[in-house]
């Protein structure tokens, strides 16, 4: 039962990018098409589950002081594996994701879950946590990707759905549209969940422990100390 809870919390309640505001770069960059969102989301889910398994198994072996570099190497290994597999079996997705596939390595969702969950919990809950967070991430990517694809190119998963007389609004697939759609999606989620407005900063960044509150320190001190 509690494993089920670990799984479902990532989908909506603690959704990694809509609620926790993590992993913004891929959410904005590859969501010009819904299909890209599926590819990116599932790749990230795979890496997240695998790295959670390995890290929760090795949590007693990895020395505390070098844990972040150790996590990064584990994650990078799985990312390389995924990108080789995609290159072989799904070359279309591989070429449309491009550089962003390698950049899963530095996706803060993965490092965040490693630091916050996998390094403190047993293997089975870590798998469920990884699955839930990964699928929650996929959900957001597909949502943002669908909005941008439908308005920006009049298609959904490559199928034309807008009538001919509607001119597609190219703005939505431009970078500016990405920022705007994600902003609106987060606003709607905040409204529906009656959440307190959140800023992007240390208090919801799981890496804050690894980099002793650097964002907030940087903001409060400015350049002069």
């Amino acid at each position: 039962m509690s494993n089920w809870k670990e799984f479902t919390k990532g989908l909506i309640k603690e959704n990694p990018n809509m609620v926790m505001l993590l992993g913004m770069c891929p959410t904005l960059a590859i969501t010009t098409m819904a299909a890209n969102g599926v590819g990116m989301g599932l790749s990230t889910t795979f890496v997240l589950v695998c790295s959670n398994i390995v890290i929760s198994l090795l949590k007693k072996v990895i020395p505390d002081t070098v844990r972040l570099p150790a996590y990064i190497v584990i994650v990078a290994g799985f990312v390389t594996f995924v990108s080789l597999m995609l290159q072989a079996f799904a070359p279309d997705i591989y070429s449309s994701l491009g550089m962003y596939l390698s950049l899963i390595t530095v996706n803060c969702i993965i490092l965040g879950r490693a630091e916050m969950f996998a390094s403190k919990n047993k293997v089975i809950p870590s798998i469920m946590d990884g699955l839930g967070m990964g699928l929650g991430f996929t959900l957001t990517l597909v949502l943002v990707g669908s909005v941008r694809e439908i308005f920006g190119s009049g298609q959904w998963f490559g199928i034309t759905i807008m009538p001919d007389f509607m001119e597609p609004m190219t703005l939505f697939i431009l970078p500016a549209g990405g920022f705007f759609v994600l902003g609106v999606v987060i606003a709607v989620v905040n409204r529906l969940m009656k959440k307190k407005p959140r800023e992007i900063g240390c208090h919801n960044c799981p890496n804050a422990e690894g980099c002793p509150g650097a964002c907030d320190k940087a903001n409060s001190n400015g350049g002069e100390q």
């Binding site: 505001l21 703005l171 431009l174 970078p175 500016a176 549209g177 990405g178 920022f179 705007f180 994600l182 902003g183 609106v184 987060i186 606003a187 709607v188 905040n190 409204r191 407005p197 959140r198 800023e199 992007i200």
Partner: peptide, 20 residues
């Protein structure tokens, strides 16, 4: 509903528009 992250993202969208 727009306070915090949403309005920041929308502002970023307009700055990005300028760079187009």
């Amino acid at each position: 509903a727009l306070q915090g992250a949403p309005i920041t993202l929308m502002a970023a969208s307009i700055v990005s528009l300028a760079f187009i």
